[in-house]
């Protein structure tokens, strides 16, 4: 299983394009997860979108994970879809818990807009370059970010 995912076309192309960008690779139940280094992130995304044999033109989903108390604390998760090849790919970028921020992907996939606002609202991760980064689901004066693991589910805050 692992062996043939190592020869996954997206992973091969990506390594060919920029071997430094790939930080780590995981597989589970036939799904491929590639960890991308933050510094190479936007370039990598543009490559995945524009490379004619890949064409990951559809950003299906964008969300985050809080691995508290681990450091780096957050992982921002991108689910890409290639309509041309019927192929899916999960990208992850590790983000530090201390002043969490990452570059916005709107310039690559305009649909990232609302998803990034949602992640900002519920996790408090800032997206540099987002044109309208403010709370979306919660009121502006809300304190804290509910999907963080240190945010209580019950009781008086």
């Amino acid at each position: 299983m692992t062996a043939d995912l190592e020869t996954h076309p997206a992973l091969l192309k990506l390594r060919e394009f920029d071997a430094q960008a790939v930080e780590d690779v995981r597989t589970f139940r036939g799904e491929l997860t590639i960890y991308i280094r933050h510094a190479n992130f936007l370039r990598t995304c543009e490559f995945l979108r524009d490379e004619p044999s890949l064409r990951f033109s559809f950003l299906a989903d964008l969300t985050a994970l809080d691995l508290y108390p681990q450091e780096p604390r957050f992982e921002v998760v991108y689910h890409l879809l290639s309509l041309q090849n019927t192929q899916r790919l999960r990208l992850k970028v590790r983000v530090s818990g201390d002043d969490p921020h990452i570059v916005s992907a709107i310039s690559v996939w305009p649909s990232a807009n609302a998803f990034e606002r949602e992640v900002f609202d519920l996790f408090g991760i800032k997206f540099a370059g987002h044109p309208f980064l403010r709370r979306m689901l919660l009121p502006d004066e809300w304190e804290g970010h509910p999907l963080r693991k240190d945010y209580p589910t019950e009781g008086y805050r």
């Binding site: 979306m136 689901l137 919660l138 009121p139 999907l147 589910t153």
Partner: peptide, 12 residues
């Protein structure tokens, strides 16, 4: 503008 029906399913 959305969020009027936010109930925090993902946290639940």
């Amino acid at each position: 503008d959305i969020g009027y029906l936010h109930t925090g399913f993902e946290k639940s």
